[in-house]
Simulated scan of single mutants.
Amino acid sequence: MSVRELWIAGYRSVRELRFPLAPVTVVEGPNGSGKTNVYRALQLLLSAAEGSLSRTLAEEGGMPSVLWAGTRQKNAPARLTVGVRLDDLAYELSCGLVPPPQGPFMLDPDVKEETVWIHEGKRRHVVAERRAASVFARDAEGHRTTFAAELWGGESVLAQISEPHRFPMLSALRAELLRWRFYHHFRTDPLSPLRQTQVGVRTPALAHDGRDLAAALLTIQEIGDPRALHAGVENAFPGSSLELDSEAGRFSFRMRMPGLLRPLEAAELSDGTLRYLCLLAALLSPRPPPFIALNEPETSLHPSLLPALGRLIAAAGRRGQVFVTTHAHELARALEEHAGATRLPLGKDAGATVLVE
């Protein structure tokens, strides 16, 4: 299912945003414009499907920290809302503060409303609906089922109702969201797992933090597109080559560069080189996701690498949908040129993230 539209309200700097998504979408703007907030809002949809919504928001400081901090209408409740349309299937989640008495878990989210619906032309058919403690869903025969047991307020319906044969639409939506992948930060410090020899397993999808990079690169070499892998290295680092090694199930990689008498081990590579290799492994996954989001992938990369990265992202956009946030005009232009990307420029208006015309 393609992601057709995203809407966000009441989240950090986002008072209200709604925009369509293309095969390759680039959210562009200066530092502080709210790009990462848009990326994180998308990631909340995955967290809702995983059953990790409370933990994800806790990592951001808890529910009070993620709510829109600007002015709101008098007596309007403080709400975080994020919604998405996937072809004819749509989902919206709305969270607020835990009502009093709050007790020790006062920073948890409290799901106030949740809706799943299907579009048939101009008609909208509700598949599941949650209003506070009241929840119903339509089963495979279209019968309305009300849940007597109260669901936990800190997690979504998607994570708590898991009967695929009974509720196939809910199951299909959850399965689709669980296939999304997000890449934001790759740890490249001297003690990073990226720099160490690893006990590897077949890894068709790079971990979100890149910790299994060596295994992911070897998996592409064995069951993916090794030509694209080595071409991606050559395009970014002309005259260089990637060497992959597996000895007794322990994986490692090194790079041979022009003018050097020996290849450089992973521990010797620059942060930018390692980050580029992580992006290469993520974008050349032998099991491409339907939707992949990259938050500021140009971080630590020299501008000379951006054309090669743009071509990689463009190629990934032909296998699945790609969502990119960036403040690098060069990357945005490369994606527009190679992938026909839709560019969404962001700015600020009275502290709120807005689309710039």
Rank of each mutant, 00 (worst) to 15 (best):
S13C: 13
S13W: 03
L17H: 01
R18K: 14
A22Y: 09
V24P: 05
K35P: 03
N37C: 06
L46G: 06
E60H: 14
N75D: 14
A76T: 12
A78V: 03
G83A: 07
L86M: 15
L97F: 00
F105G: 05
M106I: 07
L107C: 03
D108M: 08
V111T: 01
V116A: 14
I118L: 15
H125N: 05
V126C: 06
D139C: 03
A140C: 10
G142Y: 06
H143N: 15
T146I: 09
F147S: 05
A148K: 12
W152Y: 11
L158F: 03
R166G: 00
L177T: 12
W180E: 01
R181Y: 08
D189L: 04
P190S: 00
L191V: 06
S192V: 09
S192M: 07
Q196N: 05
G200I: 08
T203H: 07
P226E: 05
G239K: 10
R250V: 07
R250N: 07
R256W: 00
E265A: 13
L284Y: 02
P286E: 09
R287C: 13
P297S: 08
P303W: 15
G320Q: 04
F323H: 01
T326V: 04
A332L: 02
R333N: 09
H338Q: 11
R343H: 05
